[in-house]
Computed example of a mutant assay.
Amino acid sequence: MFEEFKNAFSRYNNAHVQLIIINVIVFLAMAVITVVSTISQFPEIGEWLHLQVAIPAPFEAFIYKPWTIITYAFVHDLSDIFHILFNMLFLYWFGKLFVEYLGSDKLISVYVLGALAGGLAYLLVYNFIPFFMERVPLLGMIGASAAVYAIVVATATLLPDYTFFLLFLGPVRIKYIAAFYIVISILGTVQSNAGGNVAHLGGALIGFIYIKQLQAGNNWGRWVIVLIDWVKGLFKPRPKVKVTYRNEDTASKKAAAKQKGPSISQAEIDAILDKISDGGYESLTKEEKDKLFNASKKQ
């Protein structure tokens, strides 16, 4: 594990660790800004920053902050260390297994798709279902749970009988672990963190669909990697164009040398081809073979 984190961004198939590091860095950065702004008696700075990355429930607020449908999945509750702790533990356990079979690119795709699906589910219930519309949260939603649920369910769908050894429980198939957390989230849709649990279910659903589509030959997440590679390309320095000049006389000589060889007329070529047609290539003499070879180079 130490080596995985030490060489996180140079190690092959290490996206699960890279995502964990990004989440932890964001968490620490948000924590420092919040603490400093509070001590400086400007707590509104931390509050403002939270609002810029959390996905708001009302559509009329979300349309002014469309980036939050992805940023919320990299931010965690600063007052609850267990929020990020458990998300990162599950991301490590299931993500490590996922990349062993499908690789880092697909893990990143599922993480992003899970975040998008969770955010969309969150928006839909708070804008179209009366029960949730009466309980709209003021600060919006943050957390990687929807993205992590997508990875958990995707892994369990891919390898349902794979076994984890859990403390106090012993060997447990991962399909049962995934099922347990889905049931917990369903029950949680009518509790205090209703929107978060709806997002969990959205992420879980896309994780299941992703693997089923992948097994059918359709990679729903290919566009994610294409987009990421395009963005990376914007920041890569472009190679300098090297201009060379060629002496015209030298070029002419090379071209003339290329055309060297015994000349052959079209009639001779036709005669040789007729001979091949009648007796095959082996019926040609060495001289005829050489003529045909030289003629083919000049075409």
Rank of each mutant, 00 (worst) to 15 (best):
G196H: 01
G140P: 04
S283T: 13
Q266I: 12
P58M: 05
V136K: 02
E248T: 11
E268T: 13
S185D: 08
K65A: 14
V36F: 12
T34I: 04
E47S: 06
K253L: 14
F235D: 02
R173V: 03
G221E: 01
H76R: 05
E47F: 08
E268W: 09
G188Y: 06
T34C: 07
I269H: 04
G207I: 01
S252G: 13
I84T: 00
F293T: 12
D80V: 15
E248I: 14
V224D: 05
M1P: 09
R173D: 07
P239S: 06
R246W: 14
S296D: 07
I276N: 10
H200G: 00
A115P: 04
G202S: 02
R11W: 06
V136F: 06
A144Y: 02
G261E: 12
L167S: 09
S263V: 11
F235W: 09
L97R: 12
T34G: 02
G233H: 04
H50S: 10
E100Q: 10
Y176G: 00
I63K: 11
M30Y: 12
S37N: 09
V231F: 15
S277M: 07
V241L: 14
F42V: 03
I20W: 12
Y281E: 02
K289Y: 04
V35F: 11
L116T: 00
F168R: 11
K65P: 03
A255I: 12
A61C: 05
I45D: 03
A31S: 14
L113R: 01
L19Y: 08
S252M: 10
I272W: 11
F208W: 11
I108R: 09
S109A: 15
L166A: 09
Q213A: 13
N23A: 15
S283W: 10
S79F: 13
T157Q: 00
A251I: 12
N219V: 03
K297C: 09
K6V: 04
L167M: 12
A204M: 03
V172H: 04
N193K: 05
Q266M: 12
I209F: 10
D229Q: 14
L28D: 10
S145Q: 02
L51S: 15
K96W: 06
K232M: 13
G95P: 06
L169W: 01
G140L: 03
N219R: 04
G103Y: 05
V17I: 15
Q18H: 01
A29N: 07
D249I: 07
P239C: 09
A204I: 00
F5W: 10
E47Q: 11
S252N: 14
D77H: 08
N127C: 06
N7C: 08
L124P: 00
V190G: 08
L123N: 08
A61T: 08
L273R: 12
H76Q: 11
